[in-house]
Design a protein around this nucleic acid. Structure first.
Lengths: 337, 337
DNA sequence: CTCCACAACTTATCCGGTTCAGTAAATTTT
DNA sequence: AAAATTTACTGAACCGGATAAGTTGTGGAG
């Protein structure tokens, strides 16, 4: 079955290719009657413009790219990215942009993918996650002049748009809450230490602990996996001065931490309070359900997609903060015994 | 910064566009010396062929499509799809095919996306998940002659390639194992009842229970969400003749079921044994870790991708079984008290 | 020495849209 | 009523590759 082209429509309507193009794109240059006739024919034969031909004649590819730089075993379980993707989609589909995805192993590979995609004119822009300090991707994006939006700042990205959420504010709220419950020894299991938002969180965590007069603010670095999260928790709990509350940088590690506590015979929240960052259905799934720092990740993604589309349209965009995570108390936090 | 084209290379090498095209594609028609010179120049200036131009001149789009038809809140937590995507990617990236993704709400929307993608020549083929009985997508794919591979059979898909795993064998193994432990009242919390593989599992579950002389084989239909899985578990456990073992159709529902049991004061595995289908890190994360039917989902995805690429290359492919899930016993199963 | 075959190119066309420069007819302006 | 403008188109060029068809130049066979 041959797929119809504008030439087919032109023949059937008895006009030229140009007229068909004007008619279908809402451009002036055809009468209303002709336009309707052409649109009707296009509808009837199920015409879709060849995206390659369109992209070739100067227009855009109508696609944006996203690379995921995490090992498969983390990606599969980490709810964050799927939530983000759902959010992107809502915006992109509305403007019929496609989302092109690639799983990579390293930031260097990621850069290669950007170069290739942009060189191939496969995409009009990219969404960059996991911003790092002195991120190798930023200068490449600038050099290529590839429209982009960065998630996970704030950081130094020059003219590249950013979307971030107020991580410092969120962790401050969580610590204040735990202190209000009576906790004095609060630890944290952090995400990948290289990521900029991990650093922001660590710094804010230390600051609020100091300001509230807590003697120490231990952050165990981790990597978002359940195994590491569990190990870090075990290390925290075997110490003499074991914490009475732990804040986790993602939900997967929090769930793993809960399991470790249960396995060690500790009661949650009696002996240990747990706070998860990023509230996914996972948090309400386990017993007890986890107190979490909630934010609307899909909306966060949608926000990023809107910024990216604006950047693609050539609008100069400033950095945008997309809301603070707020504390959703559930069964995993209580005053210490 | 203008992105280089073969014309740029041709000018610098002092040859024609055609020669450059032959050289870069390994076609005969240029001398080895010239080819190397051209390749070197292409490398130096960072040339990537414009995918649109390539697609336009008869070649393929070098992209495949995948639609995800689940609400965002399920997608975000369901590890299956991300695992599948990782598997696709491994194959696709190796042959530098791009993966285009779209989240949709209904199979009808999915069909629309297929039509559009194919009409736009945006993709060369699609991966279809969640096969249903009398699936509306199958006739459309056949009519469009859109290369495809279906995951989730076996079912009637005509000439469209299928990849499936032996669900009947897996559930039989699980039930036999539970019976060997001494269980006589085994229930199941199933996935979406419309899906073909859910039916296969249900039928096999009933058969093996009958053949082993168990009086009843209750399957509570569910929808893969934690909430529903928890609710179904609660309904099973409040009955007079409550089961001593439950098999769940995905890991998320199994974790939710575990939480419900704990919340009702039942000990796992003492009072209730739990088996999860599809072993994700989630299963080893909770306490006790869940006995699961494991299969390599990424490999499953890779398999599907290979079949799809074969179909795109015009090879007639037969249906392929991609291995049976095998039982991984962990702490959530034991003889009943 | 001529003819042929073949390598190593060049030239031109095509893919299917977009867009610009025409052009004839209709409408408005003066 | 003639001139100017506008409307509604057509025709052709163009985007950047792939590729079929044509053009040289060279070496070997006869």
């Amino acid at each position: 079955m041959k797929r119809p082209t504008i030439a087919d429509i032109a023949r059937r309507a008895g006009v030229s290719k140009g007229a068909v193009s004007y008619a279908l794109n809402g451009q002036p240059g055809v009468s209303e009657a002709t336009r309707q006739r052409i649109v009707a024919i296009a509808q009837e034969i199920g015409f879709n413009p060849n995206s390659a031909a369109r992209a070739l004649s100067g227009a855009s590819a109508r696609a944006v790219g996203l690379t995921l730089c995490r090992p498969a075993r983390i990606l599969s379980i980490e709810p964050f990215f799927m939530g983000l993707i759902s959010g992107f989609e809502a915006e992109l589909a509305a403007r019929s942009y496609a989302l092109t995805l690639q799983v990579v192993a390293t930031p260097e590979q990621e850069v290669e993918v950007y170069r290739r995609w942009w060189g191939e004119r496969r995409i009009d822009g990219v969404i960059v996650t996991d911003l790092r300090e002195n991120d190798v991707r930023i200068p490449v994006l600038q050099q290529l002049q590839l429209p982009a939006v960065v998630i996970g700042g704030p950081g130094d990205t020059g003219k590249i748009a950013q979307v971030w959420s107020d991580d410092a504010g969120a962790i401050t709220e969580a610590v204040r809450y735990l202190v209000a419950l009576g906790h004095r020894r609060i630890a944290r299991v952090g995400g990948l230490p290289d990521l900029l938002h991990t650093r922001t969180r660590t710094r804010a965590f230390e600051e609020v602990c100091t300001s509230l007069g807590l003697n120490e603010a231990v952050t165990m670095p981790s990597d978002y996996t359940g195994e590491e999260g569990g190990r870090a928790t075990r290390r925290l709990l075997i110490g003499a001065d074991r914490p009475t509350a732990v804040i986790y940088d993602n939900d997967v590690m929090a769930v793993a931490g809960l399991a470790v506590a249960q396995e060690m015979g500790l009661s949650v929240p009696g002996d240990l309070s747990i706070v998860a960052w990023d509230d996914s259905p996972l948090c309400s799934l386990v017993h007890p359900p986890l107190t979490a720092l909630s934010r609307d990740i899909a909306e966060y993604g949608a926000h990023a997609a809107r910024e990216l589309l604006a950047a693609i349209d050539g609008k100069q965009v400033s950095n945008v903060e997309a809301g603070t995570a707020h504390l959703t108390p559930r069964g995993s936090t209580a005053p210490p015994r």
